[in-house]
Amino acid sequence: MTMLRPAADGPSVIACNSCRHSGDAREDGEGVRGGARLAGLLRDLADSEPVYARIAVEEMPCLFACKDFCTVHIRAPGKLGYVLGRFAPDEAAARAILDYAVHHTASAEGRVAYADWPDGVKGHFLVRVPPPGFVAA
């Protein structure tokens, strides 16, 4: 059995659906993990607002950044990717993530000017990931 499955080949936000809700709780009061809650909010926004139409929202279990829940990976072909975490699983975080992903998609190589970063993503960057076949200069 393979652990990999096909995914969107364009710009995407991949949410860890198994992330904790908070440092103190795995799930919220309704029994939903923080990552699953954030993934649902991302998907709802992406499906309902045309500005996010080009961004695929996908999820997978565990991005291995457990201390930095709720975690997402923003990526696009041929561009630097980013792993961000330490989000509250709420609509404000989902909107900030998707707003950053729109700027990331529009960028030439995945570098978004700091002036264009939504406030909601500042302080949440964990890792910069080079695309296959490249490293950053």
Rank of each mutant, 00 (worst) to 15 (best):
V121Y: 06
Y100S: 11
P77T: 08
A94T: 09
V127T: 05
R86H: 04
A101Y: 09
L45W: 09
G81W: 05
A106F: 08
F134P: 02
A93N: 03
A76G: 14
K67M: 08
M1D: 12
A7Y: 04
M60W: 11
G31Y: 10
G120R: 07
F125Q: 08
A36G: 00
A46G: 00
G123P: 01
V72Q: 01
R95D: 03
R54E: 14
P77V: 10
G35E: 00
A137F: 08
H124P: 06
F64C: 01
A76E: 13
R54L: 12
A93D: 05
R33E: 15
I97T: 08
A65M: 14
D28M: 07
S12G: 13
S18F: 04
G40P: 03
S12C: 11
L98H: 08
F134N: 07
E58P: 04
G110P: 04
R5V: 09
H73D: 07
A94L: 11
L126Q: 09
A101M: 05
H103K: 14
P11M: 06
Y52N: 06
P130V: 15
A96W: 02
K122S: 01
A113R: 07
A7I: 15
H103F: 13
I74S: 02
V13F: 03
C70S: 04
M3I: 13
C62D: 07
V121C: 08
K79A: 03
C19D: 13
E91R: 15
H73E: 12
A39D: 03
V83D: 00
G10W: 10
G40S: 03
L63E: 04
R43A: 15
D99S: 12
C66E: 01
L45G: 08
H124E: 02
E27I: 12
A7Q: 15
R20A: 07
P89W: 02
E30D: 15
F87E: 05
A101R: 11
F87K: 08
A56E: 07
Y52G: 09
G31Q: 09
C62G: 04
A94V: 10
L126W: 02
V57S: 00
V57N: 00
G120S: 11
C66R: 06
L45F: 10
Y114W: 13
